[in-house]
Every structure is written in structure tokens, then in C-alpha cells.
Simulated assay, not measured.
Amino acid sequence: MSPGDEHDYRGKDQGSRPDDPYSTLGGTRQTRTRLPDGDAGNPGARRPVRNSRSLITITGIVVLLIAAIAFANRGGGSDDDATRNTANPGAGGSAPTAATGTKPVQGKNGTIASGFARDEQGAQSAAANYAVALGSAEMFTKESRHRTLDTVYTPAAADRLRGPQDLAYSAEFLDRLGLDADGNAPKGSTFISRTIPVGTKVLAFDDDSAEVAVWYTGLIGMSGADSTKPVSTTWKTWTAKLSWTGGDWKVTADSESDGPAPVPGDVAASPSDTISKSVEEYGGFTYAR
């Protein structure tokens, strides 16, 4: 319907106005005023003035109703409900991706966080921080690798893994990454290996053991002008079985699988010197569930 048709939208059979949009009462351009029934016998009488206080009262009631509705729809639950839902993220339904609110651990064993709580949240925090340690550049030199294994794993697991790990980080493997036999990068280049947890999930838990999956993205490669292995991203899921040992969570066994991996974005790759500078300037985090 166009604006010019507004005066005739009902149709002639429904008592539409004449074509003159300004006409009233049959086109006479005269207006009749009908007095209220109570004034019919006394045309000169005036209506009493409405008390303004009634209008203020009505307005106040409307404002209170609006405020009550907004408050009811604000969160859908009390603070106690939110605390109960986040205190035990592994119980019922999918675990929330938001932080639970408990402060991160304060302890450190070298550069690796320690002193995790003996609950589901503590197990997830331990797994996230251990994934970061095992994905760091320190794993590519023998001394720091052994130190990391002793911190992350139980003593029995560390003893079992030390030999196979040394074989895995062989001179041939390191050479393919552009490192020398001791795991050092060439002069003028920076070797980058970082793990960034995206989320954690409890697969099993009791008072003395837990199984936690850590979904993470990683950076690995050589940043340098002559590098043939530029820094690239990976997406993995690391699953760790943990045991409460010596007053903390320690890994007894672990495994890794590819993905889930999102579709790569359209951001252009940065120059190698920018990547090297960023790795030096941007520090890592202590992760807590």
C-alpha cells in the first residue's frame, strides 16, 4: 500500500472516507463535538481537573514492573547455582568452557606449575600445564627434556620413557627440524615450539586417579631467513592418565591424536623476524581450569 492510499485502505463497502483526504462528515469540512452524557444538561459545566498524583502513581508502577522483569531475566539463576555448576565441571552435561573462578596454582617446579588441587579441576589444570611443558622447545635438548619428564610423570613412568624419548629426539629427527645434534638452532634463527590449550575434558576421575583430554593448538618450526621449515600451526588432542603421587597429580601414561582442527583463516603469514620477535616478547601462561 502506498502512502497516497492511506485514506482509502478500508474500501468503500466499509465506510471509507471520500477522496478528499481533508474532509470530515460527508465533506462539509465541519466538525461536530459530542459532549459526555453527564454534561448534556449543563453544557457550560467543565470536567474536573485530574489529580496529577494518579498519573505519577501509574508511572511508578510501570517502572517497577519493568525493573522486576529485567531483574528476573538477568541471569536465570543465583550465584549459588553458578558456583555449584562450575565447582564440578565434569558432573552432568558438557563441561563449561569458561574459567571456573578458582585461582591458579601458586607453586612451581622449575618452570612448570605444581601443587594442583586433589579434585577434577586440579586434574584438568595439571593436564593443561603438562601439555604445555611437553610441547615446549625444552623437550628438544636432552638435559631439559629429562628434567621435564621427571616433573610431569611419576617416577616409574619417567624412568620408562627416558630412553625411548632420547631415541625419538634423535640427531636425524632434530636435523629435519633444522636443529643440530644437541637441539640448538643455527645462529640467526629461532626454533619455536609452543602448545596452547584450548580446553580440557575429564574422561574419568576418582580420588587417586584421573583421565583428562587436552585439546590444543601448537606452533612449531624454525624462524629464520634461511629456514626450510617455517613455523606452522598444529591441532591435537593429548590424553593423559594421572595419578595422585607425592601430593600432586603426575602422568602415568599418555597418548595423542590429530584434531579437531578448524578451517584455516585468511590471515596472511607474518615474516620470520616478526614471529621470532613475538616469541621472545610474549610470555606463556600458567593454566588453570
Rank of each mutant, 00 (worst) to 15 (best):
Met1Cys: 09
Ser2Phe: 07
His7Trp: 06
Tyr9Arg: 02
Gln14Pro: 00
Ser16Phe: 00
Ser16Met: 03
Arg17Lys: 07
Pro18Thr: 06
Asp19Val: 12
Asp20Ile: 02
Leu25Gln: 11
Thr28Ile: 08
Arg32Asp: 15
Thr33Leu: 08
Arg34Gly: 13
Pro36Cys: 06
Pro36Ser: 06
Pro36Arg: 06
Pro36Trp: 04
Gly41Phe: 12
Gly44Cys: 05
Arg47Gly: 15
Pro48Met: 12
Arg50Asp: 11
Arg50Met: 11
Arg53Leu: 07
Ser54His: 12
Leu55Asn: 10
Val62His: 10
Leu64Lys: 10
Ile66Trp: 07
Ala68Gln: 13
Ala68Arg: 14
Ala68Gly: 15
Phe71Thr: 10
Asn73Gln: 14
Arg74Lys: 13
Gly75Ser: 14
Gly77Ser: 14
Ser78Trp: 09
Thr86Trp: 02
Ala87Gly: 08
Ser94Cys: 03
Pro96Gly: 04
Ala99Tyr: 06
Pro104Ile: 13
Val105Trp: 01
Gly115Tyr: 08
Phe116Leu: 09
Ala117Val: 09
Gln121Asp: 11
Ala123Ser: 13
Ala126Cys: 12
Ala128Pro: 04
Ala131Cys: 10
Ala131Arg: 15
Lys142Asp: 07
Lys142His: 08
Glu143Lys: 14
Arg147Ala: 14
Ala156Phe: 07
Gly163Lys: 05
Gln165Leu: 13
Gln165Cys: 08
Leu167Met: 09
Leu167His: 11
Ala168Cys: 05
Ala168Asn: 11
Ser170Gly: 09
Arg176Leu: 10
Arg176Cys: 03
Leu177Val: 05
Leu177Asp: 03
Gly178Lys: 07
Ala181Asn: 08
Gly183Asn: 00
Ala185Trp: 07
Ala185Val: 04
Pro186His: 11
Thr190Val: 15
Phe191Tyr: 11
Ile192His: 00
Arg194Phe: 00
Thr195Val: 13
Lys201Ala: 06
Lys201Tyr: 04
Val202Gln: 08
Val202Arg: 01
Leu203Trp: 07
Ala204Ser: 15
Phe205His: 10
Asp207Val: 12
Asp208Pro: 00
Val214His: 01
Val214Ala: 03
Val214Gly: 01
Thr217Asn: 13
Thr217Leu: 10
Leu219Arg: 11
Ser223Thr: 06
Gly224Phe: 04
Asp226Cys: 01
Ser227Arg: 05
Thr228Tyr: 01
Ser232Met: 12
Lys241Val: 10
Gly246Phe: 06
Trp249Asp: 01
Thr252Asp: 13
Asp254Met: 07
Ser255Asn: 10
Ser257Cys: 03
Pro260Met: 04
Pro262Tyr: 01
Gly265Pro: 07
Asp266Lys: 07
Asp266Ser: 09
Asp266Glu: 08
Ala268Lys: 14
Lys277His: 08
Lys277Ser: 15
Ser278Cys: 08
Glu280Arg: 14
Glu281Gly: 03
Gly283Cys: 05
Thr286Trp: 02
Ala288Phe: 09
